[in-house]
C-alpha cells in the first residue's frame, strides 16, 4: 500500500526527473555541457583570436595601423635577434630546470616512499615550495639573493666561497643559472608528488622477486622502477614543460629578462611585447610559435617514450 502511494508521488519531483534523465544517454552530454561552454569561452576563443591577431597589425600606440598583414610578423621574427636569444634561453631554461627537478623529485620520492619515522612530516615540508605562488617565491628569492642584504651572499662570504657579495641576477654570467635554480626549487615538489604516487603503485613483491632473481638495487631501479614509472614520468615532464614554457612570472619578478637579454625567454618576450610595447600582433605571432613548438615537443616526446602503447 505505502509503496504504491510513494510511486505515484515521486515521479513529479525535479530530483526524480533528474534521476530518470541520468539513466538515459543524454546524461553524459548534460554533464559535459557546463565545462564545454567554459572551455569554448576562455580557451578556444582566445586561442583562435591569438591566431587571428598574429596575422594582423594591432598596436595600441598606433591605432591607425590596423588590418591584415599576412606573414609579416613571422618574417620579422626570423631576423629578430631577441627572438633567437629568447628561443635559446627558453630551451636552456626548460631543459636545465626539468633535469634538476626530475632528479630532486626522484630522490625525494624514493626517500618519502621508505615510510620511516618522520617521513610524513618531511612529505609536507617538501611540498611547501610548490604551494607558494610563483610571484611570492620570486620575491623571497630576490631577497635571499639580494646583492646588499641577501643572506645567501652573507653565508657564502662567511664560508669563504665568495670574497664579496655578488649581484646574482645582475651578472649575465650567473643570471640565467640563478633563475633556473630558483625555478627548480619551486618546481621539484611537483615531480616528487607524482613520482611518490607512482612508486606507491609498484607492488613490493616485484622487488622481492627481483632480489631473489639476483637483481641488485641499481638493476632493480633501472629494470623495474623506471619502466613502471615511465607513464608518470612522461606525463609529468610534458605538463611541466608546458607550464615552464608558458609562465614568465618568476623571471618577470626576478630579472625582467635582463641583464640585457640574458634571461629573456619566449613567454616573457611575448608578454613584454604585448603589455610594454602594446604590439599585440607581434606578441600574438610569438605565442603562436610557442604553441607550435609545444605541440611538436609533446608529439615527439610521446612517440619517443612509447607511453601510448600500453
Amino acid at each position: 500500500m505505502r509503496r504504491d502511494h510513494m510511486k505515484s508521488v515521486l515521479p513529479r519531483g525535479p530530483i526524480t526527473l533528474l534521476g530518470n534523465l541520468s539513466e538515459t544517454r543524454y546524461w553524459v552530454y548534460l554533464l559535459l555541457f557546463p565545462s564545454l561552454i567554459l572551455l569554448l569561452l576562455v580557451v578556444a576563443y582566445p586561442t583562435l583570436y591569438g591566431f587571428v591577431i598574429s596575422v594582423r597589425e594591432m598596436r595600441l600606440t598606433r591605432p591607425g595601423l590596423n588590418g591584415w598583414v599576412g606573414m609579416k610578423h613571422y618574417v620579422a621574427m626570423m631576423s629578430d635577434r631577441v627572438f633567437w636569444i629568447s628561443l635559446k634561453n627558453t630551451a636552456i631554461w626548460v631543459t636545465a630546470a626539468i633535469a634538476i627537478e626530475v632528479t630532486l623529485g626522484f630522490v625525494a620520492a624514493v626517500a618519502l616512499n621508505r615510510n620511516l619515522p618522520g617521513t610524513k612530516l618531511f612529505g609536507v615540508l617538501i611540498l611547501l615550495p610548490y604551494f607558494l605562488p610563483n610571484v611570492v617565491a620570486g620575491h623571497m628569492w630576490a631577497l635571499l639573493l639580494d646583492p646588499r642584504l641577501g643572506v645567501i651572499n652573507d653565508l657564502l662570504v662567511r664560508i669563504g666561497i665568495l670574497s664579496t657579495y655578488k649581484a646574482w641576477f645582475a651578472d649575465p654570467a650567473t643570471a640565467l643559472a640563478a633563475t633556473i635554480l630558483v625555478e627548480a626549487w619551486h618546481g621539484f615538489p611537483f615531480f616528487a608528488l607524482l613520482f611518490l604516487a607512482g612508486l606507491k603503485g609498484i607492488p613490493e613483491d616485484l622487488y622481492k622477486a627481483a632480489a631473489v632473481d639476483g637483481a641488485g638495487p641499481v638493476r632493480q631501479f633501472r629494470l623495474i622502477t623506471v619502466p613502471m614509472l615511465k607513464t608518470v614520468i612522461a606525463a609529468a615532464v610534458i605538463l611541466r614543460v608546458i607550464s615552464l614554457v608558458n609562465s614568465p612570472d618568476l623571471l618577470l619578478v626576478l630579472t625582467g629578462g635582463g641583464p640585457g637579454n640574458a634571461t629573456q625567454v619566449l613567454s616573457l618576450y611575448a608578454f613584454q611585447t604585448a603589455y610594454r610595447e602594446f604590439n599585440f600582433g607581434y606578441a600574438g605571432a610569438l605565442s603562436v610559435v610557442m604553441f607550435i613548438l609545444l605541440m611538436l615537443f609533446a608529439t615527439i616526446y610521446i612517440r619517443l617514450t612509447h607511453v601510448t602503447k600500453e
Partner: peptide
C-alpha cells in the same frame, strides 16, 4: 609469489 610478481613491462 601469491601475486605472481611478474614484471609488467617485460
Amino acid at each position: 609469489f601469491q601475486s605472481y610478481a611478474l614484471y609488467p613491462t617485460m
